[in-house]
Design a protein around this nucleic acid. Structure first.
Lengths: 351, 351
DNA sequence: CTGTTAGCGCTTTCAT
DNA sequence: ATGAAAGCGCTAACAG
C-alpha cells in the first residue's frame, strides 16, 4: 500500500562513508567541486546518487545564519497587480539563486503580523511588504535584528526606509483630470478603505483636480478593493434617483471598476461611458478585456517587484545609495471613457 | 546612516541567562507554557521581550526533521484558477499551523524540477503539484525518502498516488455538447500544448461529443494557455477566408477564451456568439466580466486546493483510506454562447 | 519543577 | 588534497 518510507534521510556522513572519504570532502564536492580532484568528485557524486542523498536545507541555513529566500507580503493575493509584482520580484531574485515566498495579508493586520513573524523566524534575507497600516516601528526593530525590509507600492514615511512606490496622488489627478477634460461634472470616487495609503492618495489626487476645476467629488467608501464590493457599490448607487447619479466614476482599482461595470451593465442597463464614464487603477491585463475595456492608470507592477528586490540586495550589501524609488503612473485610455475609442490590448506583459 | 545592526541574533541561551533560568525552561515556555509556573513564564517572556528574541526556525526544523510548510507547484501563477486553488490550500493548511509556499513552473520542466529539488531540500511536509509532464517516478522517489505528494488538477496514473482532479474529459464533452446542442456544426478547439494532460483530456471529451454528433472538430494548437496565445490564434483564424471559419470555438481555458474574444471583437468585428460561439474553461472570476461574458466549465478550484492539503495530511498520518478524489465539472452558461442570455455574475468566490 | 546534555546535518577552519 | 572536530540554535530526554 504505502511502500517503504525511510524516515530519517541519509546525511553527508552516510555519503562520506559510502564514498570512502570524509564529510568535509563531501561538503566540498557539494559547494566547491573545483577544489576537489575529478576522480574524487565522481566517486562522491556516485555515492550521492546511489544513496538518494538530498541536502538538508535547514541544517545549511542554521549554519549560514540566513536563508536564501526573500519574503513578500501583499495586500491581495488575488489581485493581478500583486501577482505581476511578485513575478517581477521572482525574476530578479532568481538571478542570485534566491527564492521569493509570498504571503497574503488580505488587508488584515493580524495576518500581516503573522507573516512578519514567520519570515523573521525563517531568517529571510529581506522582506518586501505592502503594509496594511503603520508598521514603521515594527520594520525598524526588524532591521535592527538583521532583516532588511523594503516597502512596496507605498512611500516610506520614515527617513531611512527603502521603498518602491508609485505616485498615487499624481495617479489620482491623472484620472480625475481625464474625466473632467471629457466634460464630466459629477464625479464620484469609489474605493476603500480610505485609511489605506494608496486609496487615500488616489482620492487626494482626484480631490485636487476636482478643486482646481471647481467641481464636486463625491466619495463612496467600500470596505475592500474587490470586484464584489465594487458591484455592490454600483448596485447601491443605481438605486438612487437618476438625477443623483454621477456622470463619471473613478474606481480605487481595476477590480472595483470591473465590479461597477458589472452593476451598470447587468442590474440596469446604464451605458458606459455615455451615461457614466469609468476609470480604474493598476491596468491589470483583464481591464482591457472587460465588457467595456477599462481606462486605467498603469503602474509598472513587474518593475516595482524587480526594483524592490534590488533594494533589498543593496541593503544587504550595505552599499546602498538609493533608498527610495518612486515611479510615475500613466493614463491608459480605453472605451470606458471614450465611446468610440478603439479597444487596444495591453502592450506589454505576458498575458 | 543604516543604524546598528546586530549581526548574530540572540538565542535561547541569552534569554535563559537574562531570565536567570535554563535553556530547557525557555524552550518549555516557548512550546509548553502550561508546564511552567506562571511566575517563571512571566520572567522568561519579559527577557524575550527585552532582548528582542526571535526563534530560529532553521534550528527548530533541523531538530524536528521536517518543516511546517507544504510546497505547491503550479503551471501558471498568473492564472486565477491556480490562485484560487492556492487560497483553498492555504485556508486548509492554516488550521494546522502549516504554511503553503508556491512555486510557478510556468510549464517548464526545468523550473518544475527546480522547485521539486528546492522543496525536498526544505523537507516540506508534502508537495502539491500540477505537473508538466510525467513525473510519477520522481514523485515515487520523493515519497520513498519521506516527502508525500499529491497531484492536483490531474489524475494519478500510478496506482498508489494521491490526486485531486476534475474529470476533464467530461468537461470537454459538456462544452462540445452545449455548442452542438445550440446547432453549431463547425467546431474548433483552441488550446495547447496538447501533450498537457488537462488540455488533451478536454480535447478528447470534445472529440467524443463531436463524433457522437457526426460532426468535425478542428484542432488549433497553441504553445500555452494564455491570453496572448489565444489572441494570436484568433487573429490567425480570422485571416482565413470566412467560409473556413468555425461557428463555435471551445477554448482550452478562460484565458485563451478571453484572448480569442479580444481578437474577434477588436481586430475585426465578429459578433459573439452570433457568428462564432465561444466556451472557455475554469470559470475564473474574470470570465463573467469579459467583453462578452464567457460561458465556461467550472472547476471547484478552492475545493481542489483544500482537498489536496487534506490528502497530504492523511498521508502523513498514515491513515489514508482515500487515495484519489475526482470532482465533476459544471457548465456555466453565459452570453458568449446564448445571445440573449442575461449576464450573471459568478455566484460564489470572493471576487 | 528546572537544569544539563546530546544531537539534528551541515559547513568550515585547522591540521595533517 | 583530505580528515577531524567544533558549533550554528533548538528541543526533548533524563536527572536531579
Amino acid at each position: 500500500m504505502i511502500g517503504e518510507v525511510r524516515v530519517s534521510g541519509t546525511s553527508v556522513k552516510d555519503v562520506a562513508a559510502r564514498a570512502g572519504v570524509s564529510v568535509g570532502t563531501v561538503s566540498n564536492v557539494l559547494n566547491r567541486p573545483e577544489t576537489v580532484p575529478p576522480a574524487t568528485v565522481v566517486k562522491v557524486r556516485a555515492a550521492i546518487e546511489e544513496l538518494g542523498f538530498v541536502r538538508n536545507d535547514a541544517a545549511r541555513q542554521l549554519r549560514a545564519g540566513r536563508s536564501r529566500s526573500i519574503g513578500l507580503i501583499v495586500l491581495d493575493g488575488g489581485n493581478p497587480f500583486f501577482t505581476d509584482l511578485a513575478r517581477g520580484a521572482e525574476l530578479e531574485a532568481e538571478s542570485t539563486g534566491t527564492a521569493v515566498v509570498m504571503g497574503n495579508s488580505d488587508q488584515d493586520p493580524a495576518r500581516e503580523a503573522h507573516y512578519l513573524d514567520l519570515f523573521e523566524e525563517q531568517r529571510v534575507r529581506g522582506i518586501l511588504i505592502s503594509p496594511v497600516g503603520e508598521i514603521g516601528e515594527r520594520l525598524e526593530r526588524l532591521r535592527l535584528r538583521g532583516t532588511p525590509a523594503v516597502l512596496v507600492d507605498r512611500k516610506a514615511e520614515l527617513p531611512d526606509f527603502a521603498s518602491v512606490s508609485v505616485d498615487d496622488v499624481a495617479g489620482g489627478e491623472l484620472a480625475a483630470e481625464h474625466l473632467i477634460g471629457l466634460g464630466r461634472r459629477r464625479l464620484a470616487f469609489v474605493g476603500g478603505p480610505l485609511g489605506l495609503r494608496q486609496v487615500g492618495d488616489r482620492l487626494e489626487g482626484a480631490r485636487r483636480a476636482a478643486r482646481r476645476a471647481g467641481i464636486e467629488l463625491r466619495v463612496i467608501e467600500i470596505p475592500q478593493l474587490t470586484v464584489i464590493n465594487g458591484r455592490e457599490a454600483g448596485v447601491a448607487l443605481l438605486r438612487e434617483t437618476e438625477s443623483e447619479w454621477p456622470d463619471a466614476v473613478f474606481a480605487g482599482n481595476d477590480l472595483v471598476a470591473m465590479g461597477l461595470l458589472q452593476a451598470f451593465r447587468m442590474t440596469e442597463r446604464i451605458p458606459v461611458p455615455e451615461r457614466i464614464a469609468l476609470v480604474g487603477y493598476d491596468d491589470i491585463a483583464f481591464a482591457s478585456a472587460a465588457v467595456v475595456p477599462i481606462t486605467s492608470i498603469r503602474q509598472p507592477s513587474e518593475l516595482i517587484g524587480r526594483t524592490a528586490v534590488e533594494l533589498i540586495e543593496a541593503q544587504i550589501a550595505g552599499s546602498s545609495p538609493i533608498r527610495h524609488v518612486e515611479f510615475q503612473p500613466e493614463l491608459v485610455v480605453r472605451a470606458s471613457t471614450i465611446p468610440t475609442f478603439t479597444e487596444t490590448p495591453r502592450q506589454h506583459g505576458p498575458v
